[in-house]
Write a protein that binds this DNA or RNA. Structure first.
Lengths: 350, 350
DNA sequence: TTGAAAGCGCTAACAC
DNA sequence: GTGTTAGCGCTTTCAA
């Protein structure tokens, strides 16, 4: 073990505050702690508080955590914070958590189930009080492990129907329906779909919603025009689009993507083939990532309230920590269609 | 205080490992700890290790931290992780730190000096072993406070000439020079500049580099064409560009921006005025943010190795923690000009 | 080489 | 109301 930082070098501890206020250490602790303040007389409480402020006392959460078996830390698992959809969510989480005295602990999982498991374990090792995860898959073995250990879990952006944990998500069904109906209203009849992995609740739900929306319009889904991806990158979008366009069947007049990045990749595939968007093929994204309005063409997409989703997830966590054992809640926030220039009426009208 | 999580419910502790291996708690501790393993006989060490693995022992870093006065946690201050330049840096930091057994603790400061100070304090309260900051301003009162407290600090992306802390940055001087020389080589003579706040080392350095590069080419800088911003947003870029374009003096044929976001804002200002980029005015950015190639027009900019900068900063931190008191080091990574379509020869050639 | 025992800074029964 | 006294799970002297 390397030399620990010099101890007590001017760092004021509870002991110092107690001494300054002329009370016992324990009394000082009670006076300073919101939830035990009532045990102490007004006067002493005030005296201790003043002393604490005067000395610039900063409680040591490590010691407190050891004593209370709580860390006031919330692990946050994010699949990839390089995906522009996530930073706003993280902001929401952080702001709301900090307001409640918790600190988030952000870990990137790279969308890799192994790293995810490692991340979860690392968090447990760090004694997090809860885990907010944006990485849930429909196969949730990791989650179960953590849940069994009694760690509070809240899902953000994703959700799992058969697991009793709270979640904050956008209404993906409505969102995807909005996009498809927009396309149908423009006159499109042959609509392709670029799906996110069905393993993600978001991917699954949007996929179902696409089918439902098409059918509800009295149309049929052509299975050759539906491609399911392995991930959510631009590259994946390009790959899927290539498969769709070069598949031999008559090309669609519009393509709905389950995610903006997929849509961006699709745009690339179209450009490569000199297919004009939106003249030849319309494209919709999902998410309304930052800068979506600046792409060529500006992307028609479904806006989801990212910051709010993060904040809601954090709120759920804080609530559950305060009242453990209550029933899980599912917050669903409403998405909104943002029409820009990647969609238009089909060329040979209807 | 709400009910702490049930204690010891099946959680294996050092005590259990010791018992299983038939040794004293202290011996088990020594056997499991890399740096004290030598004090223990081969055989016991092995026995303890096996027991630990068999029982699935996970040390409790909280307790360890309390005893060693170390947290194995590194605070990471980021001005705004919604700015697409930062996520890759954070990835670099996280990956490198984790490899060394540390965990980053990311906090967003919103570029607000007050939140910055709060963040620093929160980190100290959490007993971080060090702070990696991407928020340094040339006025660095906060930093001093932390430094005095003996916390290791490493600067990332920014640096401070007069403060003895290590840093990992891009060579901003070279980068900005690359962009300006590119413009000059295209034939531009009237070049405007959108500067980042001079309070940021990056802003200051690029600003100086712009002037030097123009002068070295035998040209003169027109002060009316240099605008210094208050921040790094698109809105700020639009505002500065408006001031520059509507300022009354003859407009430039090219504008160099100290940052991609500023450049994006500039593009908006041009569009509003129906000035074509690059036909009428060329624009360069700085940073090569993700998706920079997708904007209208694709942005000519200076690529900085973001991930590597983050990783380098983390490496510096790990090194300093292992060998405190060594001299600070400054790692400067080389940027690269990426020519895309926002720059062209000036219209009325030279 | 190992065991015993004293803390790290704080909270929480339990007395007074 | 406030003081006493045990710990929380681990590391680290000090002895043996």
């Amino acid at each position: 073990m390397t030399v620990p930082k010099a101890r007590g070098e001017g760092v004021v501890m509870l002991r110092d505050v107690a001494r300054a206020a002329g009370v016992h250490l324990a009394t000082a602790s009670r006076a300073l702690n919101e939830e035990t303040r009532w045990m102490v007389s007004e006067a002493t409480a005030e005296r201790v508080t003043q002393a604490a402020i005067r000395l610039g006392y900063q409680p040591n959460p490590i010691a407190r955590g050891l004593a209370t078996n709580r860390s006031y830390t919330i692990g946050t698992l994010v699949p990839d914070f390089t995906n522009p959809l996530f930073p706003p969510i993280m902001r929401g989480i952080q702001d709301r958590l900090e307001a409640a005295g918790y600190t988030p602990f952000i870990v990137n999982t790279d969308n890799d189930p192994d790293r995810e498991l490692l991340g979860m374990r690392a968090m447990r090792a760090r004694q997090v009080d809860g885990i907010i995860s944006a990485t849930a898959r429909r196969d949730h073995s990791h989650l179960d492990e953590v849940l069994e250990a009694g760690v509070e879990v809240v899902l953000v952006n994703r959700w799992l129907p058969d697991v009793p944990v709270s979640s904050a998500t956008a209404d993906d069904t409505l969102g995807q329906r909005l996009a498809v109906e927009h396309l149908i209203n423009l006159g499109h009849r042959r609509i392709g779909y670029l799906s996110a992995p069905l393993d993600y609740s978001t991917g699954y739900e949007r996929h179902e919603a696409f089918h439902a929306a098409v059918r509800d319009a009295g149309l049929e889904v052509n299975p050759d025009l539906v491609m399911v991806g392995d991930g959510l990158s631009e590259g994946e979008g390009t790959r899927l689009s290539a498969a769709l366009l070069d598949g031999g069947s008559e090309p669609p007049t519009a393509i709905a993507a389950a995610n903006d990045l997929l849509a961006l990749g699709c745009l690339d595939a179209l450009t490569e083939r000199e297919i004009d968007c939106p003249r030849d093929i319309s494209v919709t994204g999902f998410g309304d990532m930052p800068f979506a309005a600046r792409f060529q063409p500006p992307l028609t997409t479904v806006r989801i309230p990212q910051y709010e989703i993060g904040a809601a997830a954090a709120a759920l966590m804080v609530e559950r920590l305060a009242h453990p054992g209550t029933d899980p809640k599912h917050v669903r926030l409403e998405p909104e269609l943002v029409v820009r220039e990647s969609t238009a009426r089909p060329r040979d009208g209807e």
